[in-house]
C-alpha cells in the first residue's frame, strides 16, 4: 500500500525531530553556542539535527585544515618582523597551478641573492588550496591558513595577495596549528643545539 510507505517516510523525519528535542533536553544549556555542544552535534552518536548555527557558532576546523596560504614571520624582541622565507623558490616551483610569484632580492653591492623576498604574490583566484607549497617548504615559512571568511566585492582589488597581506606572525601560526608548530620548534631546537655543540667542539 502506497500510503503506508508515505507514513513510514514521515515517521523517519518525525523521529529525527523528537530525537533533536531529546538531545537538546539532555544537553541542557551546553547544547548550543558552546564548543562541547558543537562537538556533540558532530559526534557519530548524534541522532537528532546536526545543524551548526553559523555565524553565531562556528564549526571548528581541524588543525590540518587548509585554505589559502600565508607566510610566517618571527618577531624579534625589539618588535621587528622577520620573515622566515628565504626566497628559495621551492613553493613557486611546486605549486600546481603556478599561482605563486616571488621576487628574490639581490644585494646591490655584491650582486648576490639575499635571502628575503622583495615581493611575494599569491593569486587566490588561481590557488587550489592544495597545500603543496606548505608541504615542501624547507623553512617552515609558508603555511595554510584557517581563515576562510575572505569573501569580497571586488576581486581585482583584493584577490592577489601580496607580502603585506600574506605575512602573519608565528604566534598566529602556533595558535592555529599547535601540533605542527611544536614539532617544528622541537626540530629547530635540536638543530640549534647540535650547531652549538659543533661550534663548541
Amino acid at each position: 500500500m502506497t500510503g503506508l510507505a508515505i507514513l513510514r517516510g514521515l515517521w523517519i523525519t518525525l523521529k529525527r525531530l523528537i530525537m533533536t528535542y531529546v538531545e537538546d533536553f539532555k544537553g541542557g544549556k551546553n547544547r548550543y553556542y558552546t564548543s562541547e555542544g558543537i562537538e556533540a552535534r558532530r559526534d557519530y552518536r548524534v541522532r537528532g539535527a546536526i545543524t551548526i548555527q553559523y555565524p553565531e557558532e562556528k564549526l571548528p576546523v581541524p588543525e590540518r585544515f587548509r585554505y589559502v596560504p600565508f607566510l610566517v614571520y618571527d618577531e624579534t624582541p625589539d618588535g621587528e618582523r622577520k620573515l622566515r622565507c628565504t626566497s628559495c623558490g621551492i613553493c613557486a616551483r611546486v605549486c600546481p597551478p603556478q599561482c605563486i610569484w616571488i621576487v628574490r632580492g639581490t644585494d646591490a653591492n655584491t650582486g648576490k641573492p639575499i635571502p628575503t623576498p622583495l615581493a611575494f604574490y599569491i593569486d587566490v583566484d588561481v590557488c587550489m588550496n592544495c597545500g603543496m607549497c606548505a608541504e615542501f617548504c624547507p623553512f617552515d615559512s609558508i603555511k595554510m591558513d584557517h581563515d576562510y571568511e575572505i569573501a569580497t566585492y571586488d576581486r581585482f582589488a583584493h584577490h592577489i595577495f601580496d607580502l603585506e597581506k600574506l605575512a602573519k606572525s608565528a604566534a598566529y601560526y602556533a595558535k592555529i596549528r599547535p601540533t605542527d608548530y611544536a614539532a617544528e620548534e622541537a626540530v629547530r631546537r635540536e638543530k640549534a643545539a647540535k650547531a652549538a655543540q659543533k661550534t663548541e667542539a
Binding site: 555565524p55 562556528k58 590557488c127 575572505i150 569573501a151 569580497t152 576581486r155
Partner: peptide, 27 residues
Amino acid sequence: VDKFIPVDVYVPGCPPTPQALLHGFAV
C-alpha cells in the same frame, strides 16, 4: 564569470567550505 556577467560577491577558495559560502551570503 565576470568577463560576461556582473558579479556582486566573490568567494575565493577551492572549494570554499560551506561556512565560507555562508560568509559570502552574509557579505
